[in-house]
């Protein structure tokens, strides 16, 4: 069997998820041996336009981004959203709760529209809001073990599945003391697992970077948070960090 041709493309983000791919040091040579990487601008100078699988990192912010992602979609047989910015829009979407022009002026002052590169969409979009996404690897940044597992499954012709339970399941399995019981505000109960509860393992509350679990118990979560002394605005501020500009948090 010919090695599948794989490309990595980056849109607006910190490129930390591509870096997590490069951080697979022990497995990197095996990965490189099993696939044919034709495009990975952060690490490779060759640029092939002939690929089967496209990993997409980052959010859609400019009109140019929209055109570019459509072309990639037309070429790729499988399109994978890599990381929170691609998957939900990530914290880039915090800008969606502000007036775009005011935000630009806050940053660039009188030069807010200095040239064509300064043109942005009125709302930041996730990849799935512009083109069909076949699979998402969530997280800010991604879990590299999950990335490797997805690559293996795709190579074996198996449709990868992600866990569909909240972070609390993994956190309990890791025998952590519940941070909520210690007075912290943790989004673990409503956030999709698969990160091995890496934040709560380090005594840092979950901020929801993998997005909402399917059918989250939002009402129960909100009652708990209000009991803990949060206002509706406080809750929204926390939900908005990573859950994106979804109906739940508008």
């Amino acid at each position: 069997m010919a090695k599948p041709k794989v490309a990595f493309f980056d849109f607006s983000c910190c490129e930390g998820c591509q870096l997590m791919v490069l951080n697979c040091e022990p497995e990197l040579l095996d990965i490189v041996g099993a696939i044919d990487i034709v495009n990975f601008r952060e690490a490779i100078s060759d640029r092939g336009e002939d690929y089967d699988i496209a990993f997409i990192e980052g959010s859609i912010i400019t009109p140019h981004d929209v055109e570019r992602i459509k072309k990639i979609r037309a070429q790729a047989k499988v399109l994978v959203a890599l990381g929170a910015c691609a998957h939900t829009g990530g914290l880039n979407k915090l800008r969606n709760f502000q007036d775009t022009e005011e935000a630009k002026q806050t940053v660039y002052g009188k030069d807010a529209n200095a040239g064509p590169f300064f043109e942005v969409l009125s709302k930041v979009l996730s990849i799935g809001e512009v083109v069909k996404v076949d699979l998402a690897i969530p997280g800010c940044p991604i879990n590299r073990f999950e990335f490797i597992s997805v690559v293996k499954q795709v190579l074996a012709g198996v449709t990868p599945t992600l866990p569909n339970y909240p972070v609390c399941v993994e956190c309990k399995y890791n025998e952590n003391e519940c941070l909520m019981s210690k007075g912290a505000i943790c989004l673990g109960p409503i956030t999709l697992a698969g990160c091995d509860s890496r934040c709560t393992n380090s005594q840092w509350p979950c901020t929801g970077c993998r997005g909402l679990v399917q059918n989250p118990h939002l009402e129960a979560d909100q009652i708990t948070l209000i009991k803990a002394g949060l206002t509706v605005q406080d809750i929204l501020r926390r939900y908005r960090l990573f859950y994106g500009y979804s109906e739940v948090v508008k």
Binding site: S12, T62, R95, Q98, K104, V107, F117
Partner: peptide
């Protein structure tokens, strides 16, 4: 530098 502005300083 055609990098899309992310506007952290605003949000």
């Amino acid at each position: 530098v055609p990098e899309s502005p992310r506007m952290f300083e605003s949000f």
